[in-house]
Computed example of a mutant assay.
Amino acid sequence: MAKVHISQLFQTFQCALSTLGAGEAIEARTFKKDRGIVVLKQDAEYFVFKQFGFNSQTLTLNRASLLK
């Protein structure tokens, strides 16, 4: 997995979301690897956003809401 600077993370996710197939995911973790996010593509419209670490939560969002 490639290291991406925080300033480039939004652009990297935006590009990767358009190329993901259903059931594929992209993950971003902090340097210490104790916190991060995972975005799983459910189908053409919906994504599962999972945040883990200090605060853990799981949300199902559409693409527009996810990028906000």
Rank of each mutant, 00 (worst) to 15 (best):
M1W: 11
M1C: 07
M1K: 10
M1H: 10
K3L: 12
V4H: 01
V4W: 03
V4Q: 06
I6E: 11
I6G: 04
S7M: 01
Q8I: 05
L9T: 13
Q11Y: 05
T12I: 06
F13I: 15
F13E: 14
Q14W: 01
Q14L: 08
Q14K: 12
Q14V: 06
L17G: 04
S18K: 07
S18T: 11
T19R: 07
T19F: 00
L20R: 08
L20F: 02
L20W: 00
A22M: 08
G23K: 06
E24Y: 00
A25P: 02
I26A: 12
E27I: 15
E27A: 15
E27G: 09
T30K: 06
F31Y: 13
F31C: 03
F31D: 05
K33Y: 08
K33M: 15
K33H: 10
D34L: 12
D34Y: 13
R35T: 07
I37P: 01
I37Q: 10
V38D: 03
V39T: 02
V39S: 03
K41M: 03
K41L: 06
K41C: 02
Q42W: 04
D43Y: 06
D43K: 08
Y46G: 04
Y46R: 10
F47S: 04
V48G: 00
F49P: 00
K50D: 08
K50L: 11
K50E: 14
Q51N: 13
Q51V: 08
Q51G: 10
Q51T: 05
Q51S: 11
F52G: 00
G53D: 04
F54I: 10
N55A: 14
S56N: 10
T58E: 15
L59R: 12
L61C: 00
R63F: 04
S65F: 14
L66G: 03
L67M: 15
K68T: 09
K68Q: 14
